[in-house]
């Protein structure tokens, strides 16, 4: 009797376990019809970046008087949400479009998180170090060559959780960016994009 029951029980267990998790699928990130989630996902960053770039180009703030291109640094982008966000998720898209617009040049030498490319300074440090003899001095960057930024793009991502009703919570995300003229300290442009979501109170958006 036990000989018959055990294989059947094993088969049932195997079948039920195999149905627990569906197969992994890649997301169609260009036309994703997936449901919204309470946390910030890539679609929210896409929407925020698109709105910000459109607003910034439309404002005309990037048109330099007398022609030429502004040198822009990405300043500090504060993550004031309950989620672990790398703010580059937003800024990489914004920077890419600003660069491609042909109106600005981004600098990698300074930024809110320090230089975005440490190699600028590593190569310069070689000139003062033990390994300086290994390099052709003519190929080393000269002093006073780095161009200082004229404009700084900085901002904040904020989160507010609001109780909507007994079973629903509302989560509001605010994407704020502003463009400041570094020499005068004057603000040339700023905008805010709000993304609001409602979902179960049992979900925790972080």
């Amino acid at each position: 009797m036990l000989n018959k029951v055990l294989p059947i029980a094993g088969l049932i267990a195997a079948v039920s376990l195999s149905g627990c998790g569906g197969p992994t699928q890649n997301i169609d990130v260009t036309n994703d019809p997936g449901k919204a989630v309470l946390e910030l996902d890539y679609r929210d960053f896409d929407q925020a970046a698109a709105a910000m770039v459109q607003s910034l180009i439309q404002s005309g703030s990037l048109k330099k008087a007398g022609g030429g291109r502004y040198v822009v640094a990405t300043g500090r982008i504060v993550n004031d949400t309950m989620q672990r966000i790398d703010t580059d998720q937003l800024m990489a898209k914004v920077e890419k479009d600003l660069l491609n617009s042909g109106m600005v040049v981004m600098t990698s030498a300074v930024g809110g998180k320090g230089a975005s490319d440490e190699m600028i300074y590593q190569v310069r440090d070689i000139k003062k170090g033990d390994r300086q003899d290994e390099f052709d001095p003519n190929s080393m960057p000269a002093t006073r060559q780095i161009i200082a930024p004229e404009l700084s793009l900085s901002g904040k991502i904020l989160q507010r959780n609001v109780r909507y009703d007994r079973s629903t919570q509302q989560v509001e995300y605010y994407f704020q960016l502003h463009l400041t003229d570094i020499s005068s300290g004057l603000r040339f442009w700023q905008d805010e994009k709000i993304i609001g979501k409602r979902g179960s109170r049992s979900s925790v958006p972080w």
């Binding site: 036309n31 679609r43 896409d46 929407q47 970046a49 698109a50 709105a51 770039v53 459109q54 180009i57 439309q58 898209k93 914004v94 890419k96 479009d97 491609n100 617009s101």
Partner: peptide, 23 residues
């Protein structure tokens, strides 16, 4: 980055408008 799906809401029996700028 501007070529993304953007939400739009048009009120009943109402005019609506949206805009875009080239990159």
């Amino acid at each position: 980055a501007m070529s993304r799906w953007i939400q739009m809401s048009a009120m009943p029996k109402s005019e609506f408008a949206f805009g875009a700028i080239a990159p």
